[in-house]
Design a protein around this nucleic acid. Structure first.
Lengths: 229, 229
DNA sequence: TCTTAAAAGATTGTGAACAATTGGCACGCG
DNA sequence: CGCGTGCCAATTGTTCACAATCTTTTAAGA
């Protein structure tokens, strides 16, 4: 169950987790500048720790590093947004099929809980958490498929999808129609791999079609102190 | 053409490239311990630079970091080896299809040169370079497909494949039958996407079948001074 | 007023010193 | 003789200080 094959030290791990969470919850909108010193002061650690965390996050595509300029929350352009979903539709349907074949009752229960939490978050209008939980659902499926390599890719892609959604989401009413997640859950629960693969595929197409990938730009919040929220 | 979306500084970039090359050429066999100080002295840089490079390489799966213990050249187990090829067979056939559809004459010429160099290396018995060039061929196809996201995954997977081959390759006569590469090249050259996809798929199956994934262990070279070679 | 250039400020890149953790080794006990 | 314990060396984890680089500001000239 090693979520990170590479073991990193607790402080840098903490900062990485916190930053990732802040970005995925959209508390740090895409384009936000992340000053090393500011983050270091905020988390009470040295700059080196923050630097390490930022380097890791940049590998996952959540942060963009510009030489001698600093780190910014990644701002995927429409082309990259399309690529992310293209890649997901290559990996996740197969993962869903495998997950359906291999899931044990505990796994299904776990997924059921995820869906429930996601539904609750949506009901409360907490879209930030909803997007996050929705991503966790997809990630969990890849993990159940017991393909650690693919799962790590899916984790990275789901993370970036969160950024894409923050930038280009069109239908503000439904975040990730939990309808699709319910059906997926059912298919996996009854071990129907073919159905799960099919459902995942169409679910991803749905997600992509919910984006507005015209070339307009969204405003960039300049201040990193959004962390305070 | 940004090979690295994240721009890193020249020194760390150099060390990273050198280390990657040494690992991919099997001059640093899997399991070799990589001491920060030793590498720093060898390349004439500070430990910080080496540390950064190692962290990057660990993200690509070429290096394993163990907390408070150090860095080692990654040693994928049979399970991980299988996963790597499973993932490749999800991504690369599609990439080959796209590459065939989008390749311009310059791209084809580039691929042709790669194949020629690979053939030459094989003829000279330089299997290290041959494996490396073979990987470059696969990577290049993903790049031609113009799917930067998928290409980055393929790069990581190809790199790990090099480790897998170092550990589990069975047929020492033919490294990566350039026969298959020639056919792929031809299919891409005539823009036949369907054929390219099919060829890539079967090529990957062939590669996997050339591995001996029984559970025996290979000896671990203890001394990192293999760099001298 | 606009353009240009230079200096000041801020931020990252790097190296060296200190602290913390780990693994090995010898010593002593059962 | 085997085994557990405590010390010691080696290596990593972290912080801090300095150098290099970039951005911004400011001021002078056309």
């Amino acid at each position: 169950m090693a979520r990170d094959s590479l073991e990193t030290s607790p402080p840098v791990e903490t900062v990485k987790r916190e930053l990732r969470r802040a970005i995925l919850d959209h508390r740090l909108p895409p384009g936000t500048r992340l000053t090393e010193e500011a983050a270091a002061g905020h988390y009470g650690v040295g700059r080196t720790v923050v630097r390490t965390a930022l380097l890791s996050l940049s590998h996952d595509g959540l942060v963009t590093l510009e030489r001698n300029r600093g780190a910014f929350v990644a701002r995927p352009d429409p082309r990259e947004a399309r690529e992310v979903f293209e890649a997901r539709s290559l990996l996740e349907p197969r993962a869903a099929r495998l997950a359906a074949q291999r899931a044990v009752p505990a796994d299904v229960e776990d997924l059921r809980r995820h869906v429930a939490e996601e539904h609750a978050a949506l009901a409360q209008g907490d879209t930030g958490s909803a997007v996050h939980l929705s991503g966790l659902f997809h990630t969990r499926i890849a993990e159940i498929a017991a393909q650690e390599t693919i799962a790590s890719f899916v984790r990275a892609l789901v993370s970036r999808s969160s950024l894409v959604i923050a930038l280009y989401w069109r239908r503000h009413d439904t975040v990730c129609e939990s309808h699709a997640h319910h059906e997926l859950l059912a298919a996996i629960g009854r071990g129907d791999g073919a159905a799960a693969e099919e459902l995942m595929q169409s679910h991803l197409v749905d997600l992509l079609s919910g984006l507005d990938l015209s070339d307009r730009v969204k405003p960039v919040s300049s201040l990193a102190k959004a962390l305070q929220g």
